[in-house]
Simulated assay, not measured.
Amino acid sequence: MPEHWEVRTIKSLAGKGYKTFVDGDWIESPYIRAEGIRLIQTGNIGIGHYREKEFRFIDEETFVAFRCTEIMPGDVLICRLGDPVGRACLAPNLGVRMIASVDVCILKPNESAIAAFLVYAMSSPVYLEWIGSLVRGSTRDRVSRSMLGRFCVPLPPLPEQTAIVEYLDAQTSKLDAAIAAARREIELLREYRERLIADVVTGKVDVREVAVQLPYEPPEEEAGTEEEEPVAEELATVDSQEEANGEE
């Protein structure tokens, strides 16, 4: 690590004020609604990216009653639950108000850290392996917020943080586009395969002309056929020799 970089704990990077490094809220099933304030869960947090799935909401009354912490776009969301534990992403801009479930830690960084840089730092395999090695052994990998706050990340000066984020954004966007294109091609090939099988077995596609053009393959001879004839000839030769010897 460059000498002019710092090593800082995650907790020390939280902003000043109320609820800048807190756990999400414990929301039980009876309070879940079909619309309202969006509930971000552990399944929504990938390694360095937000995953759109599992739509759940609460209403305003529940938000007030439980004194929930509202997530703002650009906050750092850190998963305290395994697969792997410690993975992080930026809170997305979904166009609705958001809160997080209890196993999601919310970090609102102070002026010394750029949120996107922290997400990249916490997406490093070295960082994730380090956390995983310390929480391994329990029946379910989980890290407390206080323990998570003691983990360290490298912290360069702000101009270098910005340069690193811009470089990684540009490079990873190319890779993400290539991955998306490859997945789309795989999906199209899978759809074509399923449609082809369906059309052939239902007679929508006539394959008789193609079958005629296939190279002829003679049926395989039964096992042992080639060995039986030489054995029979050998036995006949032995019999002839015995007869000849008898006549002598």
Rank of each mutant, 00 (worst) to 15 (best):
D25R: 06
A88P: 09
I131F: 13
V64E: 13
A14C: 01
D23K: 13
D23T: 15
R142I: 14
I10T: 02
D83W: 15
F63D: 14
V85S: 05
W5F: 09
W26F: 15
G36R: 04
C105Q: 03
Q41T: 12
H49M: 14
I71H: 05
V102M: 10
Y50E: 05
M72C: 13
V96Y: 14
V102W: 12
V22D: 06
D25S: 08
G17S: 02
C89I: 07
L118G: 08
P73Q: 00
G15K: 04
N44A: 01
G95F: 07
V143R: 04
C79V: 14
N110Q: 02
I131E: 14
G74H: 01
E111P: 15
I106L: 02
R142F: 07
A34F: 08
N110Y: 13
A113T: 05
R80G: 13
I32Q: 10
I114A: 13
A100C: 01
G43D: 02
R51I: 15
V135C: 09
G43W: 03
S124M: 10
E54S: 09
R142W: 12
L39A: 01
L118A: 01
F117V: 08
Y18K: 15
E28F: 12
G137C: 07
T62G: 04
S101N: 07
K11R: 08
L77I: 00
I71R: 00
G17E: 00
N93H: 11
G137Y: 03
I40V: 01
M72I: 11
W130A: 14
V96N: 13
G74T: 03
K108S: 00
Y31H: 12
G132A: 10
G74C: 02
Y18N: 14
A116N: 09
S101M: 11
L13S: 04
G82K: 07
Y127S: 09
V102D: 12
L94N: 10
D83I: 09
E129F: 14
E111C: 15
